Amino acid sequence: MNIPKWWIVLASLALAVPSLVSCIHEEAANSSSSDAGETREAKKEFNLASVDLPIQDFMPTANENLLIDRARNALAVKCMEGKGYAGFSLPAPVADGRDLTDRRYGLSDIVAARAHGYELPKIRESGTGEFVEKLPGDQKRALVGDKKNLSGPTFARFGCTGVAMQEIVGSAPPIVPAYQLASEIQMKSWNKSFKDPALIPFFGRWSDCMKDSGYRFKTPMDAPGSSRMTRDEAREMAEAEVVCNYESGLLKKWYSIDSGNQREEIAKQESRLREGLRKFEKQVESAKGILVEN
């Protein structure tokens, strides 16, 4: 499932919890040696890339988002042609291949760490934003509307893009995503998991592991590469972080806590989540029908 750059946003929120971080090493010192042996096994048996989070059952996939983007573009182009812009076209949309678990608990992909360090791998983009900005004023207003127009019909406010989305979603913009509740749950779940006392000994083991490689950090949230580092130095540190994330058992434990939080919220709000899912599934079916007709 796809939700891009959550880790970057959530990491900044997580750093506001100094009371937890300050007692990490004290708690870690009390952890048993048998637990340490268990974390070595965790490195072998757990792979974050092979699992999903429970809330992802209620969120769109990259392919579903792409399908809706394609339908939106098809309708927007048809609308533009109807407004007198014959031959108008839009860049083809591109699926975002990133997953909700990407960098959610720090780095977890050793191949990406060796290649990119702490930089986000570049993904192929459609270039739609740049394309729209370069349009002549009249075409741009026709496509995306006029932000200064706070009332009036959909076309005046949101242009052909708004008209297209209204047909897909079934309601006029601004549009609240059908999966908004699921998005809120996954964010709250991460923040709650970061503050869970059960992570304290694992943060301690992670910190000790990083120290063995010459780095002094208390949690993975403290360890993004510094601009003062060379690219090779950043890659070395990123690789050390991935190794320590697995070897300490941190990734497995954090994922477990995060998943548990989500299951609790799903149980409380399952009817609303399923209602949102049904709405989104209708939008996907609508998009499929539009693409067949266009």
Rank of each mutant, 00 (worst) to 15 (best):
L143E: 07
Q166R: 02
F58T: 00
P4T: 05
S193V: 05
S213T: 11
A223K: 04
A49C: 04
I55G: 01
A95R: 04
G249H: 13
R104W: 06
I55H: 01
A42E: 06
K253R: 10
F88M: 06
N65Q: 09
D212M: 08
L143Q: 03
L250M: 14
S50M: 08
S193G: 08
V169W: 04
Q166A: 10
L150I: 14
M210C: 07
M165V: 04
L150F: 10
V284I: 15
S286V: 05
Q166T: 13
S193Y: 04
A71W: 03
S286Q: 14
G152P: 07
S189Q: 04
S171F: 04
E241C: 02
R278V: 13
I123M: 07
T219I: 06
A14D: 12
Y118A: 07
A74N: 05
W206G: 02
F88E: 00
V132H: 13
K288Q: 11
S183D: 10
R205H: 10
R231F: 06
A198M: 06
R263L: 15
R231E: 15
K288D: 08
K188I: 15
S189F: 00
G37N: 15
P93R: 12
N149C: 13
V51D: 06
I257A: 04
A71D: 12
R157W: 08
F158C: 09
